[in-house]
Amino acid sequence: MQKRAEAAFISSFGSSSTTSVHAPGRVNLIGEHTDYNDGFVLPCAIDRGTVIAVRRRTDRRVRVVALDYGGARDEFDLTQPLTPEGAVHWSHYVRGMAEQLVSFDPSLPGLDMVITGDVPQGAGLSSSASLEVAVGAAFRAAGGTPNLDPTQLALLAQRAENEFVGCQCGIMDQLVSARGVAGSALLIDCRNLTTMPVALPEDAAVLIAHSMVRRGLVDSHYNERREACAAAARHLGVNALRDVTLDQLETSGLPALTRRRARHVVTENSRTLRAAEVLAQGDLAAMAALMAASHASMRNDFEITVPAVDRLVELITDTLAGEGGCRMTGGGFGGCVVAVLPRRRVAAVESAINLHYRSPEGLASKVFVCQPSAGAGALTSQDEFGANT
């Protein structure tokens, strides 16, 4: 990707970029819809992400080329108020991030940027957070916001998505993209934003399978689920569902539907903390049981899975026969499933998916095995994100 971005930069802007940056996508191993409830999540950054070739300008204009949208362009002035322009949706994330960076550093310089990426869009692997964090890394690498630390960068990216794009996401996606640790998942306390790396067993693999059912958080029921959680917290008189026990919830008098939504969050927090423990111990059988319980909770209490995703999880779970776990990952209503499994079982799982799974439209799943990767930063010519493309 890095070489492709640099070649396009030269053809678009007439000379070379000064640097390239990347920010990874992520897959969440367990802990779904807990982040905006001040809870716990266990994602890992993956070796797919966004790459930006960048050069600082002498004025305060920003020119952007999006290679993955046919070379579409956007241009704006950092001295003027920024607004979403038309239906060019990718540009909303760039503009929203620029707006937040200007609020952090009013002297933010202009840039020329060429953007490309390989995170499947609409798959629940956080292509949007990868883009936002990469834009922040680009401005930082070009000399803007030099004092912006990774957690601050993630917070600005979250605010851009909340306020400019209009999706009320939590902090998980942006924080793991900014702070990921190679070879490890990252246990995140979404209340105080502390992180703890959790090394995956050396013989474990992370397999992601796309259901080929596209999802879109802004257009889905994501915001409705978030409001149900907020309503439950208000009823219980707490700041967030993280502060609620299961006993309190079951005797709360909440309407049945709202109580089920809250029950998912309360039980998922417990599962996530336990998952960090068993994963660190290398206990994949215990991890499998926790992932199965998580998926059942998302299906029955939070109601964010779809039949195709349920079938895909069942197929992988049956193939693994207790040697690894699988669950839906991401905001829901389509997208991907994630499995944590011994490497020796990867081929069998891939074969089962290829033989027995098709989406409602008859599409085969896209399957890939990813490596837990480092968070956002500058690239050199030898870095993995750009070395082979």
Rank of each mutant, 00 (worst) to 15 (best):
A5E: 06
A5M: 08
S12T: 15
S12E: 15
S12F: 07
F13I: 10
G14S: 07
S16E: 15
S17H: 13
S20L: 12
V21N: 13
V21K: 13
V27R: 10
N28F: 04
E32G: 12
H33D: 12
V41S: 08
L42E: 11
P43L: 09
C44A: 15
A45M: 08
I52E: 11
R60Y: 02
V64N: 08
V65D: 03
V65P: 02
A66N: 12
Y69E: 14
A72Y: 05
E75I: 07
L82K: 01
A87F: 01
V88N: 12
V88I: 05
S91E: 01
H92C: 03
A98E: 03
P106S: 06
S107N: 11
L111D: 05
D112T: 02
T116L: 06
G117Y: 02
D118N: 15
D118E: 03
A123G: 09
G124V: 08
L125H: 09
S126N: 02
S127T: 08
A129T: 01
S130Y: 04
S130I: 06
V135T: 01
G136Q: 02
A142I: 09
G144H: 06
P146I: 07
L153A: 15
L155G: 11
L155P: 00
L156F: 11
V165N: 04
G166A: 06
G166T: 04
G170M: 00
M172N: 09
D173Q: 10
Q174W: 10
L175Q: 12
A178V: 10
A178C: 08
A182H: 14
G183T: 06
S184I: 00
A185G: 10
I188M: 00
D189Y: 00
L193R: 13
V198N: 07
V198K: 07
A199C: 06
L200E: 12
I208G: 09
A209G: 02
A209W: 00
M212E: 15
M212G: 03
V213D: 11
R214P: 13
V218E: 10
D219H: 15
Y222M: 03
Y222F: 15
A230L: 14
A240S: 15
R242P: 01
R242S: 04
L249V: 10
P255C: 03
A256M: 08
A256G: 01
R261V: 07
A262L: 11
H264W: 07
T272I: 09
E277K: 14
E277Y: 06
A280P: 05
L284M: 14
A286C: 05
M287N: 03
A288V: 08
M291D: 03
H295V: 07
A296S: 12
M298N: 09
D301I: 04
P307K: 05
V313L: 01
I316Y: 00
T319N: 05
A321L: 05
C326L: 02
R327S: 10
T329V: 09
T329G: 08
G331I: 06
G331N: 06
G335M: 04
V340N: 04
L341N: 04
P342R: 02
R343A: 15
R343Q: 15
R344V: 14
R345N: 14
R345T: 11
A347H: 05
A347P: 00
L355C: 07
H356I: 01
Y357V: 07
S359M: 06
P360A: 02
P360R: 02
E361H: 06
S365I: 03
V369F: 00
A374G: 14
A376D: 10
G377R: 13
A378S: 14
S381T: 13
N388D: 13
